[in-house]
């Protein structure tokens, strides 16, 4: 009995080491935060359009599966993500709404003119409030909204081609089933 007591520190450490190993080997990114809004209705927004015309609103998205992408011309990782978005828009015909997060309209416009526009419409979130409503804490962030207007998935950081193949496209496919 007394001898078991001396085993206690070792046992505690074995537990700790196992847990470190799990934390280390899982490919999870410690910086990634799951959205608090998963399966909740997407926040309402009504933003001026970057490309002119009617405002970009949440009401206008009802009844379809959309991908909402927060981006900014000042954001370097967004440039990394841009070709992936272009492919999604052109080949997969995904409905994408861009939200220019705390960006100068001219800069955002120039960026899209220069490198191509993957978005159906682009809203201007000048104050960053819509970003906060979505729980954005950095750009780029990407949200998938289903037909009923609920947020189903959030991607933090630039979308990688792998994430698109493995997660985004299958999810969109599933959500598009009637």
């Amino acid at each position: 009995m007394r001898k078991l007591l001396y085993l206690l520190p070792l046992a505690a450490f074995v537990g700790l080491a196992g847990y470190f190993a799990v934390a280390l080997l899982s490919d999870r990114d410690p910086h990634e935060l799951p959205s608090a809004l998963i399966d909740k209705p997407a926040p309402a927004f009504d933003l001026p359009s970057l490309l002119g015309g009617a405002n970009v609103t949440s009401a206008g998205l009802q009844g379809q599966v959309v991908v909402v992408n927060f981006f900014a011309s000042w954001c370097v990782p967004c440039r990394l993500e841009h070709p992936v978005l272009m492919r999604l828009a052109n080949q997969e015909k995904v409905a994408m709404i861009g939200i220019a997060y705390k960006d100068k309209p001219e800069a955002a416009k120039k960026q899209l003119d220069d490198s191509g526009n993957p978005y159906r419409s682009v809203g201007l979130d000048l104050s960053g409030r819509t970003g906060i409503d979505f729980g954005v804490y950095g750009v780029p962030e990407t949200y998938v909204i289903d037909k009923t207007g609920r947020i189903r998935r959030k991607f933090v950081g630039p979308l990688s081609p792998e994430a698109v193949e493995r997660e985004l496209l299958p999810l969109l496919h599933r959500l598009s089933q009637p």
């Binding site: 001898k3 001396y6 085993l7 520190p9 070792l10 450490f13 074995v14 080491a17």
Partner: peptide, 8 residues
């Protein structure tokens, strides 16, 4: 782990 085993 080694030192705690020795300890046990």
């Amino acid at each position: 782990g080694g030192s705690l085993t020795l300890y046990a």
